[in-house]
């Protein structure tokens, strides 16, 4: 209120507040603040619970043992989280081998090559792909992809296997990559394309040297989102890859991911309050740290490579 310059008491005639309007403004501001506060409080609450429960777990199991142990059998006292981390990363990396190239190339096709008509057909299809419940992807993997792999060139693939989970999570995250990348490619100003065409660039050169680098920050963001989504994906992976915490890099075997394990525990296998139950907080903390690191990394990558436009 330090800016208030009114010194003379009195009633303004023309410039006074209109009471009703002033009240409405305040209510709107309060409601908006309330909504923002709810999200902040929720986030803080989650982090606090995560850390307090997680730390009580780490008082009993040393973090180094937790992070370096290679066996995950909490029932018999083995709390090595590596198999779960490896299973999670394997699925995420495998899925990104599908989602990143397919998503990027389809985004380039949509943004730079497709006619408006073709675009108007493909875009909605991709959106439908993004809207399918993940459990459906799960049994699509179990009942279609795995049998297909078995009948074709991988006869000894297990019923539950990491490979079909990778494929299905990859397909699931293609729309995320393609639609965000498409948006950022289309946001590149036409004047830059014209500048490149104007000095005799071919369409391919315009895309690779101007459009794509300009859109890179959005494109990398879409990759990070897709990978985060793959890391966090639960249902499809549980159904497709099973629930066997193996320390393996063989995608033909069953694995268990971190989220899948959390589901398994919350389904009531371990009673509340036990160390077994508290494992889920430790794992959630680890997941949290992983996605955090990924986001920080992506921010660095983006600021390093992006060509920024006003």
């Amino acid at each position: 209120m330090s800016t208030t310059a009114v010194v003379n008491p009195g009633r303004p005639q023309r410039f006074g507040h209109r009471r009703s309007q002033q009240f409405t403004e305040r209510v709107i501001a309060a409601v908006l603040f309330g909504c923002a506060a709810v999200t902040v409080l929720t986030t803080v609450g989650i982090v606090v619970i995560l850390f307090s429960e997680g730390l009580s777990f780490f008082r009993e199991i040393h973090p180094v043992d937790f992070l370096t142990g290679t066996r995950w059998t909490p029932a018999s006292g083995n709390f090595g989280v590596l198999p779960l981390i490896l299973g999670t990363l394997m699925i995420a990396v495998g899925a990104s081998f599908i989602s990143i190239p397919v998503g990027t190339l389809s985004a380039i096709f949509l943004a730079e090559y497709a006619s408006p008509k073709v675009r108007s057909i493909i875009k909605p299809i991709l959106e439908v792909l993004a809207g399918i419940p993940t459990i459906v992807y799960g049994f699509f993997a179990l009942t279609f992809i795995t049998p297909l792999l078995r009948d074709s060139w991988l006869p000894d693939v297990g019923i539950f296997n990491a490979l079909s989970a990778m494929i299905v999570v990859g397909i699931m995250t293609v729309p995320m990559v393609s639609s965000i990348s498409d948006d950022s490619l289309r946001a590149v100003p036409e004047s830059l394309r014209e500048a490149a065409y104007g000095v005799g660039a071919t369409k391919f050169e315009v895309i690779t040297r101007v459009t794509f680098p300009s859109a890179l920050s959005g494109i990398v963001a879409s990759y990070i989102l897709a990978i985060s989504r793959a890391v966090g994906e639960t249902m499809a992976v549980t159904v497709a890859a099973g629930a066997t915490p193996h320390l393996t890099l063989n995608p033909l075997e069953s694995v268990q991911t971190m989220t899948a394990y959390i589901v398994q525990v919350t389904q009531g296998e371990a009673p509340h309050g036990t160390i077994e139950f508290r494992t889920i907080f430790a794992i959630a903390m680890t997941l949290f740290a992983m996605t955090m690191i990924m986001n920080l990394l992506s921010a660095r990558i983006v600021s390093k490579f992006r060509e920024r436009y006003e």
């Binding site: 100003p189 014209e194 500048a195 005799g200 660039a201 300009s214 920024r308």
Partner: peptide, 18 residues
């Protein structure tokens, strides 16, 4: 593309690449 190599263009708004 070859034509545009021989006939250059400068646009209304300056449009340098980033």
């Amino acid at each position: 593309v070859e034509v545009r190599r021989v006939i250059g263009m400068v646009f209304q708004r300056p449009n340098p690449f980033a």
